[in-house]
Nucleic acid binder design. Sequence first.
DNA 1: TTCTATATGTAGGCTGTCTATATGTAGACA
DNA 2: TGTCTACATATAGACAGCCTACATATAGAA
Lengths: 107, 107
Amino acid sequence: MNADALRGHMDALLLAVLEREPLHGYAIIEALRERSGGALDVPTGTVYPALRRLERAGYLASEWAVTGGRRRRTYRLTGDGRAALAGERSAWRSFTNVIGSVLDPLR
Amino acid sequence: MNADALRGHMDALLLAVLEREPLHGYAIIEALRERSGGALDVPTGTVYPALRRLERAGYLASEWAVTGGRRRRTYRLTGDGRAALAGERSAWRSFTNVIGSVLDPLR
DNA sequence: TTCTATATGTAGGCTGTCTATATGTAGACA
DNA sequence: TGTCTACATATAGACAGCCTACATATAGAA
């Protein structure tokens, strides 16, 4: 998966994976890998800064937890985050329509 | 249309729009706008450098022409460019599948 | 004890898209 | 004649997000 192609869609991916349940960073990476059938293997240097960015934006909230001697910062969607996710989904649909209309124009 | 979302897909758009016939830069911008129903309005500062990049890569070839007192650099797809376009289309399909699988997972 | 998996985080690099600017012609319109 | 818009190409520099590489640390298996 080309890194440039992902650009601008990472927020949508992160919000989507947190829709059902709160998760910590490492688990988010695994969830993305599973949901994508192994195609998405997002490096930590991408995910952790992005999560902080989304928290700063008010779309996520986090809290620390310790489980089995391991510290985790668990993120959950805020109300604004749910709204943002809806916007991202809508933007994704129009994005694919637009690019698709150029790549595979009606004959 | 968010600029970041476009990143990594511009090459595919440019190659696709040149598939049928050679075009010069300004006409390419218009073609993208038409094909996308007005959604794509790519600035010249994006298109001209991108076209040069694609020519350097061997996917496009260009030649100057003067029409009605106006100089135009007309680009056409090379053989390598056609192959690259096929690759871009395939990459686009898998890209949308991957992102889609995360955004709208099977219930 | 060593290795792997788990877990978080930062610094700095890379690169493609953008804004802003520069240059110039043709044709319409006043 | 002068001005405005459309046509047409091009570059410099800003910006931002994703990346690699590295640092740190615990748990459990081998």
